[in-house]
């Protein structure tokens, strides 16, 4: 059987206490939400925090509230199941709802949280393995080694952002509130993932925690999320496409976000620009989907071959736009 390493478990009752502990303990401490990703990673010794700080007692991090102006505020500690059950999320934020529904399995969604998913550790075939396996390849750049085995020439980690929630939140224009020991700040969702290296996959500092997820009113914009994976359950995405279109007739604003094809989510800027001012017809969609393929360069560190995943960018972006047409 796989056993957890020994660690100290803290479950403070306030955000201030959590960030204080994180500041004091430094990199030896890590936060845990539902634990569905952290504890398996710890069993494999991918991470061995000396202190695990749980947010289970932080009521301030819970809640699904629609404000008067149409903004949705979600507490990061809400389970994925709670979001799945919310009829208004399903109706007004289809990209988010579809993304959440596709995450892991129903049983895991009872435990996993939206905050956990948005902060999900990056993944790679060379990383998400047991300790003994990783020793066989001399460990990897992200975890105690010197080489990225996905792309040995480069001094960069190519572990993949494998969240379904992330591209949906970016497409919907969400913002996150981060609280640290010295105060809070608000960032656009895309800015949390503005990174190029799988080792440092978030701009959130280690002593900050996410306290609020704010999704602005969509004002009639339509959204969708499509996920590529081998099976219809359980599997992480090996390509995720979140798309949002505002404007009837002519496109006023387009958001096309790819995920699971690199260390960070990728906005298909060329595709988006090609759509502005045009109606969503076959020709415009074909052009946009072809441009999207150029946006990403998947590598051989997930299920399904990189050449296949790259091909599917075109197919999935096309299908996403057709669904919104």
């Amino acid at each position: 059987m796989m056993r957890l390493p020994t660690f100290a478990y803290r479950a403070p009752k306030s955000v201030a206490e959590v960030t204080k502990i994180l500041k004091e303990e430094g990199p030896q401490a890590t936060i845990v939400a539902g634990g569905t990703d952290l504890f398996p990673n710890m069993k494999r010794r991918q991470v061995e925090p000396k202190t695990v700080v749980s947010m289970v007692n932080l009521d301030a991090l819970r809640g699904i509230e629609w404000r008067a102006d149409g903004t949705l505020r979600i507490g990061p500690m809400e389970t994925l199941r709670a979001l799945e059950r919310d009829e208004r999320i399903k109706a007004e934020l289809p990209a988010l709802w579809q993304a959440v529904l596709s995450i892991s399995t129903p049983i895991l969604r009872n435990q996993g949280t939206i905050g956990g998913n948005l902060n999900l550790d990056t993944r790679c075939f060379y990383l998400n393995q047991n300790y003994e396996w990783r020793r066989t390849i001399n460990h990897c750049l992200k975890c105690t080694g010197d080489t990225c085995w996905t792309a040995p020439g480069a001094d960069k980690c190519w572990a993949v952002n494998s969240s379904d929630g992330v591209p949906a939140m970016i497409a919907l224009g969400a913002r996150f509130v981060l609280a640290g020991p010295d105060g809070t700040r608000e960032v656009a969702a895309a800015d949390l993932y503005n990174v190029t290296d799988g080792r440092e996959w978030l701009t959130r500092r280690p002593d900050e925690i996410m306290t609020d997820i704010l999704v602005p009113p969509q004002n009639g914009a339509r959204s969708v999320y499509l996920k590529l994976r081998k099976r219809d359950s359980f599997d992480f995405p090996v390509l995720g496409v979140a798309a949002r279109i505002a404007g009837n007739g002519e496109v006023e604003k387009a958001d096309i976000i790819l995920n699971a094809v690199g260390p960070a989510p990728i906005r298909c800027v060329e595709s988006e620009q090609a759509l502005i001012g045009y109606a969503l017809k076959d020709e415009t969609i074909d052009e946009a989907k072809a441009l999207a393929t150029r946006a990403a360069k998947p590598l051989d560190n997930t299920d399904l071959m990189p050449s296949y995943r790259k091909k599917m960018i075109r197919v999935f972006v096309g299908r996403a736009l057709q669904a919104l047409a």
Partner: peptide, 21 residues
């Protein structure tokens, strides 16, 4: 080219069908 390691020795990555399949 990586010491002959098994690529996917886990129940997550060695794919067998779920109820959905």
């Amino acid at each position: 080219r990586r010491n002959g390691v098994h690529k996917i020795p886990s129940m997550l990555e060695y794919k067998s069908p779920t109820t959905m399949e």
